[in-house]
């Protein structure tokens, strides 16, 4: 078996803040192979974006740093490097060329004073070494690929001429313009309305198949996960709490947090006394724990032991679970 495209091993990310050092991400491990979509789900603030910025080498400097673990990436050349310790120049050469990223905010993620064509062509000239005209033609081709109608003309438009959905397509075109091996999509559809969301997801899935990319798909929407992911990694308070093939996770969740998340999906909404649909939510909120399981304060299955011993990420049958009681609860 060849090494995976990306293997994050026991990652921790720390930030220096006025109140001292904080470590919002710790104990994150996950793997992605070519042609595979791995979804990372978790509530807002669970460390999904920080994990993806660490992978891109885009942690805010100088406050943020990888304080533990490795981010192994297999380059096109076949070498495997640790992105956490790679020199800046190497990261610059990788970004946009072998690893690309799309962000959550399509309205603000494009440069307002450059045309969308210029923004795509800039990356193409840099990484593929095309001249100006060839890069522009390639940009137009990419805009066509993401199904922007009349791409040749729209390439000369500025971002403010475009809707949110269009801009996210431009972001996708930009990210894929140099045929990266790995795409990180950080909540790419969260800011879009539902019909546009579905279109963008379908598009991403099609392009993933055509380019054979590995995709790290970050979302807090489990409905989206069911549609596109092969594997799912669930994060809670900066830790991976469960990781499993998508079908296993939906059919037989092992971690109490995953189970609670699934019960909160809109498709499982219940009707209240007056007949309104109510989406349940997990009671309580994320809080720092001194010791033991981070989820214990909100866990319906917690026992006193859970607040004493911190669970490890246990592997079993191609799945991983961070819960002291998962075997007895199964």
């Amino acid at each position: 078996m060849t090494a995976p495209l990306l293997a994050i091993e026991d990652l921790a990310v720390s930030f220096r803040t006025e109140e001292g050092e904080v470590t919002p991400v710790r104990g994150v491990s996950l793997q992605i192979s070519e042609n595979e979509t791995v979804a990372v789900v978790g509530e807002s603030g669970s460390g999904k974006s920080v994990t993806s910025f660490a992978t891109m080498g885009l942690l805010p400097r100088p406050a943020g740093r990888v304080s533990q673990g490795r981010i192994l990436f297999r380059r096109r050349s076949g070498d495997t490097i640790d992105l956490a310790t790679a020199p800046r120049a190497t990261m610059q050469a990788l970004r946009g060329a072998e690893i690309a990223m799309i962000f959550q905010e399509p309205m603000t993620s494009l440069n307002p004073v450059l045309t969308v064509g210029e923004q795509i062509a800039e990356a193409v000239r840099l990484h593929l070494g095309y001249d100006r005209r060839k890069a522009w033609a390639h940009a137009v081709e990419m805009l066509g690929l993401v199904e922007i109608p009349d791409a040749a003309r729209r390439a000369s438009d500025y971002p403010h001429h475009m809707s949110g959905g269009m801009r996210q397509r431009v972001m996708i075109a930009l990210a894929l313009s140099c045929r990266p091996a790995l795409l990180i999509a950080d909540e790419p559809t969260t800011a879009l309305d539902v019909t546009i969301q579905a279109q963008v997801l379908t598009l991403l899935d099609r392009l993933r198949r055509e380019l054979g990319m590995g995709v790290l798909f970050i979302t807090h929407n489990l409905g989206v996960v069911a549609e596109i992911a092969d594997r799912v990694t669930v994060m809670y308070a900066g830790e991976v709490v469960e990781s499993a093939p998508v079908r296993d996770l939906f059919n037989a969740p092992r971690h109490p947090y995953t189970r609670a998340l699934l019960e909160c999906m809109p498709s499982r909404a219940i009707q209240d006394a007056s007949g309104r649909r109510v989406v349940r939510s997990i009671p309580g909120q994320v809080s720092r724990v001194e010791r033991g399981c981070a989820f214990a304060p909100r866990c319906a299955d917690a026992t006193p032991a859970c607040s004493v011993e911190a669970p490890m990420l246990e592997s079993d049958a191609g799945r991983q679970t961070r819960c002291l009681r998962w075997r007895e609860l199964a």
């Binding site: 885009l58 990788l94 990223m101 307002p112 800039e122 840099l126 990484h127």
Partner: peptide
Amino acid sequence: DADFVRTARAKGIS
């Protein structure tokens, strides 16, 4: 700190 500056960095430009 704008998002589009982060996008520019994500492109790998200097």
